[in-house]
């Protein structure tokens, strides 16, 4: 039994050590600004299409599914409120994070993993750069900066998607009422929750991606394995953390 637990506990310990070094590194020199802007471009601009599409359609689908239930109670005017709250609190942050986990946590794991198995990480250390500062820190910072922005974009496009379905397609309510009710329903609590979540997700998913990359052994097969693990672990953490953070905010 203890032997079974040894592996996961060791993995978790090493993950925490790497995270500690990377997070401490954020306030320490050296800074590789070039790498940071490249990563922000890769993660932020690169994820725009997929985030726009998922944001838009999650809002549209929400309005669509809610239409019948709301009609039953004659509460179709509330559709804006429902779309806004679910998107800003949960759907926006979680779906955006899952998309970025699939795109970028996997990308980080495979890039760093390939570097590991071809001795490039060793070469980096031998030639005077700390891989945590040069590789992990820029990815961590870039994700933490752009994921909240992407989430805001997804939230907004979700509202637009909801409006198209609710007002133009199904005619559940008027445009003015839709935007009014969605704007009024949002409280500071929702916004705080909706922005804190992507920030936390960003830290976790970038560190998970980098950790599995840096741990890679066993050639190209190993790179494939760590890529898969990175996506799975990052995605699971996203859904677990959204519950934990939600729990804190609900009781507040």
């Amino acid at each position: 039994m203890l032997d079974l637990l040894k592996g996961p506990v060791l993995t978790f310990q090493e993950f925490i050590l790497l995270s500690g070094r990377a997070i401490r590194g954020v306030v320490r020199k050296p800074y590789y600004w070039d790498d940071l802007s490249i990563q922000m471009d890769l993660i932020g601009v690169g994820s725009l299409p997929v985030v726009i599409l998922t944001g838009f359609f999650s809002g549209a689908v929400m309005a669509l599914q809610m239409s019948r239930a709301l009609q039953t109670y004659g509460a179709t005017s509330q559709v804006g409120q429902i779309v806004a709250i679910t998107l800003v609190r949960e759907m926006g942050p979680v779906l955006t994070a899952l998309m970025v986990a699939g795109r970028n946590a996997s990308g980080m794991a495979s890039e760093l993993g390939s570097m590991k198995v071809t001795e490039q990480i060793d070469a980096m250390r031998a030639l005077g750069t700390d891989p945590v500062m040069k590789l992990v820190k820029p990815r961590l910072m870039a994700t933490a900066i752009v994921l909240p922005m992407l989430t805001v974009l997804a939230d907004f496009l979700g509202l637009v998607g909801g409006w198209l379905v609710a007002c133009i397609l199904l005619g559940l309510t008027t445009t003015t009422q839709y935007w009014n009710s969605s704007w009024r329903s949002l409280e500071y609590n929702d916004i705080a929750q909706g922005l804190l979540k992507p920030f936390v997700f960003a830290i976790v998913l970038s560190l998970v991606g980098c950790y599995y990359g840096m741990q890679t052994t066993g050639g190209t097969q190993g790179v494939g394995r760590s890529t898969t693990q990175a996506v799975v672990v990052a995605s699971v953490w996203v859904v677990v953390l959204t519950f934990l953070i939600g729990r804190i905010f609900v009781s507040m």
Partner: peptide, 10 residues
């Protein structure tokens, strides 16, 4: 140092 496979940054 020269690494076994060169260790060049590709």
């Amino acid at each position: 140092v020269l690494f076994q496979e060169g260790g060049l940054f590709d």
